[in-house]
Amino acid sequence: MAFISVKDLIVEFTRIDEDGREVPGKKALNGVTLDIDRGSFVAIIGMNGSGKSTFAKCLNGLVIPTAGDVTVDGFNTRDEGHLWDIRRRVGMVFQNPDNQIVSSIVEDDVAFGPENLGIKPAEIRRRVDDALRKVGMYEHRTKGAHMLSGGQKQRIAIAGAVAMRPECIVFDEPTAMLDPQGRQSVMDIIKELNAEGITVILITHYMNEAAQADRIVVLKKGLVFADGTPHDIFADREMIEKAGLELPYEIELREKAGLPDTVMTVEDIICQLK
């Protein structure tokens, strides 16, 4: 069975009308069905308003479906009794690096998750040190969080998720507010975590980041618009344009230079020319 299974997922936000009653508002997700396998690296792309961020929040029960089901490792996110079982399995890193750090000091923030799980102090210490080493921030462990750059803060947020020893981490546009160096360091860590067996779900609007996944899901108006390998997804130029997206630079170049569509990377281009 798939690690995460999403079936007919509908999320409808309610709004308060003039008379103070709750009425149905905008539909963010309109019937999404997909399975995510353990250990995979899935990128989710789509325009703003396509529902990708709401989808991410459904995967660990931050948003509960209006209709349909999300099951994580056998636990349904509707089942409040197992919410913590779900959240310890599915960690999450958000877009704004500043707004997800709870404690002023780096290592105390990383400890926040494990502390909530009620783990013994010595074990928390070990996990925090491991997580900080993994993101390359161990030397900064006693620093104040506000002294760090955006990229460094985002690495702390990743360490905070890693310290909970999750099976899966959902990244909700983790690089959107970073400079190119910060973006690169975060992408390197994401790929490393995936190589170590953590399931990665990456919401992004950078196509070159999505191209590094094993699978891409394109959302449009709350529906799965396309789902496949980066090769298949980026072969369909028309679909990409309809979804309001663009091709990664390598593929754009391949198309315009008239190279065969098996070419995906710069290495492939070099092979073609040699």
Partner: peptide, 14 residues
């Protein structure tokens, strides 16, 4: 919430 915060009960400290 995503980091399993659910009040002070059952929380430990590093």
């Amino acid at each position: 919430e995503a980091r399993c915060y659910h009040g002070g009960a059952g929380r430990t400290r590093m």
